[in-house]
Nucleic acid binder design. Structure first.
Lengths: 320, 320
DNA sequence: TTGTAGGCGTTATCAC
DNA sequence: GTGATAACGCCTACAA
């Protein structure tokens, strides 16, 4: 017991005793057993983070920020890669409920509104993303519609009149593509520009490769266009590459704007205009919400929806 | 006890009993307590991964591959971000020894040869990186010298005669920059080309920003050059941007090659020639070595040094 | 100020 | 085939 008191810096230990304990610990190369401490305390000091893959630029950026934010609360982060698959996202929830983690930050990509029921758990969970609003847990999201409208408006202000949208498949109104599509439409309507369905370009996956192909095809034999709003910077990087392949000059003939402000976007040629959703703020809020839940037992009475701020970062790809 | 037998699929449980247990579990919403299981078993099923930051392209790629490889062994991965700082790398070692992790994969960036002593631990550790060779633990490394030589040779074969090296500070012969510098020199010597110290360009940090500045300065008023070997793709991305700022055409006037083959490099304009060090193989080996150590107690008798393979990926930036 | 008792939830062992 | 017992290492509560 005295050893425990020394380890945990409890007062009421005589300096001489403390010294003897420390010496013995050093001599025996003693290490506290974290598993035993966890069992006794009922907490592990670790939170789970479930994201599609840490190597994807946006999720990597977010994971880094979340690990840093968690560290400020004295928490470690264990990462599950879900591959954006619904079943893996549900599995992460299950692990968290097994008290492997004190709480879980879950990026819902594969799960959809129909899975809201799975979130009815007596365990701290914060949802990150667009797929689930109004669920039984706290939620941190991007200002998708407003930011997408701002990005589109920026293209209009720079003189674009036939603006394409490069997005994923528009399925159920609650994914990244659909929400940003809504913002794109809003901006066009507000400016009195027609919405040409031929300029809404869906790619099967939000990858550079798919985006590059689509951009090449559009430039080769698609309808005329003078601007592209890409739903992510990854898509925009692919688009820039595809347009270059087709001999289209950016921003001379076509202006391009992305979304996410990943580190690389400032160094592309041309550098990429984009939306900065303040990843650090989102990470900080997500961890703060989770920590608050970890304080009390049981299901929360009120859920918080935190929508981040954003700013436009104007670079060469929408220059004059 | 019978519950435990059911949960762990032990034989010798009568089907009817198993059924009753399963029903009770469902009724009570029973969850195994992983902390208690860890205490009892003396293992946590989690390994630690200490890297500078998951958001850096190379470490993100590696982390993703490691998480996937660990998953194949039924292990979770908890990530510590060290910021490349020696003290944080040592702290990760300490956590692992506290039995928080069953083992640790440690990317040594801040630690150096002088810290070999810290690795003398009775706990599974695999070192990843260049800083520590011949230590008391297993080690997975890139084929730095050979691959750097191959990259430089490629520039020579493409007609370059004044090849710059864009690297970090060359301090102690056992970091990424120094090892790749050695390969660069080897290739120049083998080709009978002079080694011009003015063409060895150190930047204070291996970032896009620092590289872009250095490339601009070189193009503006440095010595003449017709090729650049960049020690990482990140540095190469910065260099491409800096050269573009200075109005230098790539590959027309100057050819550029990087190292790492990060996802983005294929989509840059111009696309980036680079060295692919087979991240998946490195990750797979690192986890396999760690798992092997986790089998036995105590310090290993023999240490394994695994040096990955590599291949050149030729793209536009070194095209004719 | 120090030390004793007990229990966190699980599972290896062994008796029934 | 089932279950009682004990122990993994720690820390809260309380006694000395």
């Amino acid at each position: 017991m005295t050893v425990s008191n020394v380890i945990n810096d409890h007062p009421h230990v005589r300096p001489a005793t403390r010294q003897r304990v420390l010496e013995a610990m050093a001599r025996l190369d003693y290490r506290v057993n974290v598993a035993a401490r966890n069992l006794r305390k009922g907490r592990t000091g670790t939170i789970g983070l479930a994201v599609p893959e840490v190597n994807r630029p946006y999720y990597g950026r977010l994971a880094a920020a979340l690990i840093t934010a968690a560290d400020r609360h004295g928490l470690r982060v264990s990462i599950e890669q879900t591959g954006a698959r619904r079943e893996n996202e549900l599995a992460a929830l299950s692990l968290s409920r097994n008290r492997l983690y004190d709480g879980l930050i879950l990026a819902t990509v594969g799960m959809g509104p129909a899975d809201v029921g799975s979130l009815e758990v007596d365990h701290p969970v914060v949802i990150l993303g667009e797929r689930i609003f109004g669920g039984p847990v706290d939620h941190v999201a991007m200002p998708n519609v407003a930011a997408a409208a701002a990005a589109t408006r920026h293209l209009i202000e720079r003189g674009c009149r036939r603006i394409a949208l490069l997005c994923g498949e528009l399925r159920d109104e609650v994914d990244v593509s659909s929400l940003r599509h809504a913002g794109y439409r809003q901006a066009l309507e507000a400016a009195g520009l027609p919405l040409d369905p031929e300029l809404v370009l869906s790619v099967p996956s939000l990858t550079m490769d798919a985006a590059a192909r689509r951009a090449r095809a559009l430039a080769a034999d698609g309808p005329a266009f003078d601007g592209v709003f890409c739903v992510t910077d990854t898509v925009a990087m692919g688009a820039l590459r595809g347009l270059a392949d087709a001999g289209v000059r950016v921003p001379g003939q076509v202006k391009v704007i992305g979304f996410d402000n990943v580190d690389e976007s400032a160094f592309l040629v041309p550098s990429l205009s984009t939306v900065d959703p303040d990843h650090d703020l989102m990470a900080e809020r997500a961890v703060a919400l989770l920590v608050a839940r970890m304080g009390h037992e049981g299901r929360p009475a009120h859920q918080e929806e935190f929508v981040s701020t954003f700013s436009l970062v104007i670079r060469e790809s929408t220059g004059r």
